[in-house]
Design a protein around this nucleic acid. Structure first.
Lengths: 238, 238
DNA sequence: CGTGAACTTGAGATTTCTCAAGCGGGGTGG
DNA sequence: CCACCCCGCTTGAGAAATCTCAAGTTCACG
């Protein structure tokens, strides 16, 4: 049985059986986390990485006046603080749902990377792919309307969730509130709400109680000006 | 004599004399580039990395309707397409000024990383630090006012330029137009212009003909809510 | 001296925000 | 089992930030 972490890393290049086994041995322990639990805080300098074995999480910063910006959402199989391997944490990581967190000691990770350079490469690749997503979000926040931005984010979520095998019949569980959505997109909750109604009104999607359902994929990608290239997924998944 | 590239990589951890020598040998050739020249285009899958030996550049994407988002500015010593080592390019890189571009074949880079793991680590670190800057820009575009955002960007530029030894008397050359500034910050050129006037009016800075002069650093960092932690520079430089 | 790019200004339009209040459903204590 | 409560969602309405269009200015350069 292959863990989600291995599957995730293989999105960025095939790994040998040995390498896969090495990855499976990285997680030395797991623990459950409740929804809304802070996994890592700004300023931390952790000694291990956290893998989302199950559940979702997000990364965010808070401004002095309490306004929040969410930088990314994480899904099962993601390492949510790989940055901590080389740099201190400059943002927080919080769970969206209850889930299971795997711990990978930095020492073990370093050892695996040394023994299997392709593991290092796969990890580096994930961090580059992540940076590509950051850039795409910048495009959205800088240059796209609220309507397009929301549609784009839902497209991204569905594609990533599908690549992780978590979409069934154009439906997936994504337990975020409209407030999370707003904080990720740089919008007010009120405006997000109204724009979401427009998207629903167009018959493109529905989004209730943390369940996302895409009813018109072609329409949604058009509304979101969505081109999945920036996700750098294998072509059959994009 | 140590190149800017080496100096830049050493910002993220000291390197031995051997390692420094290896880095110096990476650049197999250099060429001059004119201002506004495209170095890399979206869709490219380059076989070498480009080092800015001299001159500045920026990374950007253009939307179907022609609107542009700038994702980052690069200064001498930066590798501007390190992503190309592992993933295709999903954005363009264009020079801001005439300058000199060093070419580093991916094969040589891979060899150096294999021989000197700390070189690989330093490079990875630069890409993580770069991602941290992306995140900070997201905070700005999502949650900060035009005024704060512009001030913040100028703070960032000065700190990075200072770390590269390119600031003298609170003054540095940064050959961008107000249009570049707008495209980096997600603002219209008109609004950028008026907001810049406010910043000038406060006596915080002046910015003319590609010359940036900070006249009130304390005031500017306050206006920009600037905290340099996210740049992950050695403490004496931040 | 002409030209073009960058910068500046004015004014009205639009998007998005803020404040404020009401609604609804699921969970909990009585 | 029911009432209450809280959180998330929704609505209304006025305010603020920012955008667009359009024209004018400045200055470096040929």
């Amino acid at each position: 049985m292959v863990s989600r972490l291995t599957v995730n890393l293989q999105l960025y290049g095939a790994l040998s059986a040995d390498e896969q086994r090495a990855i499976e041995k990285l997680v030395v322990s797991t623990r459950t986390a409740s929804a809304g639990e802070d996994l890592v805080l700004e300023g931390d300098a952790p000694h291990h990485c956290r893998v989302l074995v199950d559940g979702q999480a997000f990364r965010h910063k808070t401004l002095p006046d309490g306004r929040r910006q969410i930088m990314s959402f994480h899904i099962p199989g993601d390492i949510c603080d790989l940055q901590g391997l080389f740099l201190g944490m400059d943002h927080n990581v919080t769970t969206l749902s209850a889930g299971e967190i795997g711990l990978v000691p930095h020492a073990k990770l370093a050892e695996a990377m040394e023994t299997y350079p392709r593991i290092a490469r796969a990890l580096w690749r994930t961090s580059l792919a992540e940076a590509a997503v950051f850039r795409e979000w910048m495009v959205g926040m800088g240059r796209r309307s609220a309507y397009t931005r929301i549609a784009h984010l839902f497209c991204e979520i569905i594609v990533r969730m599908r690549a992780a095998g978590l979409v069934h019949q154009n439906r997936c569980s994504f337990p975020i509130t409209q407030q999370h959505l707003s904080d990720a997109l740089g919008l007010s909750a009120v405006h997000t709400n109204r724009t979401l109604q427009a998207l629903r009104g167009e018959g493109l999607l529905s989004f209730h109680g943390g369940e996302l359902l895409i009813s018109d994929w072609a329409g949604l990608t058009a509304a979101g000006e969505f081109d999945p290239g920036y996700l750098h997924l294998p072509s059959q998944l994009a």
